[in-house]
Simulated scan of single mutants.
Amino acid sequence: MLLSAVAMLGLVVGGEPTPHVHRVMGMLLLGGNGQVPFEPPTPEQAPPPGEPSWADALPAPLPSIATGPQPEPPSPDGRARPGQMPAPPPVRLAQSPSNEEILRRLEQLEQENRQLKQQVTGGGAAPAATVQPRQLPAQMVPGWRVSLYDWNREGEVRGSPLASFNLRNQRINASLGQRPINRSSVRERHAGVTDEMFVYQLSGWLHVTRPGRYELGFEVTCGFEHPCNLLVRLGGAQLVSVRDRKFDNTLLQTAQDLEAGDYTLEVVFGISQNTFFKYRPTGVTLFPLIRPPGELNYRDFGPSELLTEAKPGVPYGMPGR
């Protein structure tokens, strides 16, 4: 009814609808249907071709990385140019020491160790006696002069020897020099040895070809808990004096600084007590050894290192039984 009235009013007034009439009629039509009136878009200035829009702006350009001037090559003679740092010196690898150098250093460390031990234990020990070489006799053979003396508890050389013979260096036992076994004795026949006991004296000459510190070692076994005596003299100076001590496969050591030359060497050995029920002469042993300067281990004497005088009437080799 209202729409008809408005239309009629427009027609009456102007003969055709005015723009205001059209607008009013559109609003009435849209509003009557429950729809939102149409709004035209807001005008926006479009960017000229080739320029990005405001919404899609490109990131700022990355700053350029500054680079310094390239270093100049070194001069032909290898020296640094003005303003350049000199080249580092070439790296040289250290060469491994030779075996002789290692042995020399080990010997030096051992000597320092011995000196430190003397200081720790009181430092009151008397310095080793200085020995002098002597004139070597004209006729010599390799090994020891072995002399057997009557047994005594103190292990001293007394009176004249019971027997003497020359013998190369080796491990000896207390059966050396015993008489033949008594076949009528069950014990001797079973053991293969007798109950005889001796004090053994080994005499010889140590031939030194180069100066240095020479070490002497003595492997000692007394056997069945028997105590032993051991005495060692070099060039007349006493180096070892062990009395009434028990040893079981023990290496006794001594050392002396020597010049090149020849030195007398004496070893006196024997057990200091015996219980015949347990006595076994083959279990009482002695083996002299040497360690010259520059060597790592003890070893047997060489043929020219240990000598003894060759005398008429003194046999060479193991005595018969």
Rank of each mutant, 00 (worst) to 15 (best):
M1I: 13
A5E: 15
A7N: 11
A7W: 09
M8H: 09
L9R: 14
G10E: 14
V13H: 14
P17L: 11
P17T: 13
P17G: 11
T18G: 12
P19S: 13
H20F: 14
V24T: 10
M25R: 12
Q35C: 11
P37D: 13
E39H: 14
E44M: 13
E44C: 10
A46M: 13
E51M: 12
P52S: 12
P52K: 14
S53F: 12
P59I: 04
L62G: 09
S64F: 14
S64N: 09
A66F: 08
P69A: 09
P76Y: 07
D77H: 10
D77A: 10
G83W: 03
Q84R: 12
P88C: 13
P90R: 12
P90M: 10
R92N: 14
A94S: 13
N99Y: 07
N99V: 10
E100L: 14
E101A: 14
E101T: 14
E101V: 15
L109P: 05
L109W: 07
L109I: 15
Q115S: 08
L116Y: 04
Q119S: 06
Q119F: 04
G123R: 04
Q132N: 08
Q132Y: 08
P137W: 09
M140R: 06
P142E: 13
P142F: 05
G143L: 01
W144A: 04
R145K: 11
V146S: 06
S147D: 02
R153D: 06
E154D: 13
E154K: 07
E156R: 08
L162R: 15
L162W: 06
F165G: 08
F165I: 10
N166E: 12
R171P: 08
I172M: 12
A174M: 05
A174R: 00
L176F: 04
G177E: 02
R179D: 02
R179V: 01
E188V: 04
E196H: 04
F198G: 00
Q201I: 03
S203C: 03
W205D: 03
H207D: 10
T209V: 06
Y214E: 02
Y214P: 01
L216D: 01
G217Q: 03
G217V: 01
V220N: 00
V220S: 00
E225I: 04
E225M: 07
L231M: 11
A237H: 11
F247E: 00
D248G: 07
N249Y: 08
L251C: 02
D257Q: 13
E259G: 10
G261V: 05
D262V: 08
V267R: 00
V267C: 00
F269A: 02
S272Q: 03
N274D: 09
N274T: 07
F277V: 00
K278Y: 09
G283Q: 03
L286P: 00
R291D: 01
P292H: 10
P293Q: 05
G294N: 01
E295G: 08
N297R: 14
N297L: 12
Y298E: 03
R299E: 04
F301W: 05
S304E: 15
T308P: 08
T308M: 06
A310N: 09
A310V: 07
P312C: 05
G313H: 05
V314L: 11
P319S: 05
